[in-house]
């Protein structure tokens, strides 16, 4: 438990979350959501929850991003807000 790394990762996570809901390009927002998931995975590794971090890296950052990209490819890419 290193508190400097903890605060750094939490700041990165909040910045990624705000960027993901404010970007008008949906593909960019989805990629930033993948980066958010990886930062979350790093935070859980740092907390000691290694099994949860494995699952998040494979499921939350991998499969979820792939599904989002497939759905955005089939629908509109631009968003109004």
């Amino acid at each position: 438990m290193i508190w400097q790394l903890d605060i750094l990762l939490l700041i990165f996570i909040v910045v990624c979350a705000i960027a993901a809901i404010n970007i008008k390009d949906l593909m960019g927002a989805v990629i930033i959501l993948g980066a958010y998931s990886f930062f979350m995975c790093l935070l859980w590794t740092e907390m000691g929850a290694v099994d949860v971090a494995f699952t998040e890296a494979s499921v939350g950052a991998g499969i979820s991003t792939v599904l989002f990209i497939a759905a955005v490819n089939r629908t509109a890419r631009r968003s109004k807000d």
């Binding site: 979350a17 993901a20 809901i21 949906l26 927002a29 989805v30 959501l33 958010y36 998931s37 979350m40 935070l43 859980w44 949860v52 939350g60 979820s64 989002f68 759905a71 955005v72 629908t75 968003s79 109004k80 807000d81």
Partner: peptide
Amino acid sequence: KRNLVKKLIGMNIFQTSIIL
């Protein structure tokens, strides 16, 4: 937000914060 993909991204962030 009015866009449905944005709403879904928000739902993901909400779930992840509760898991955290």
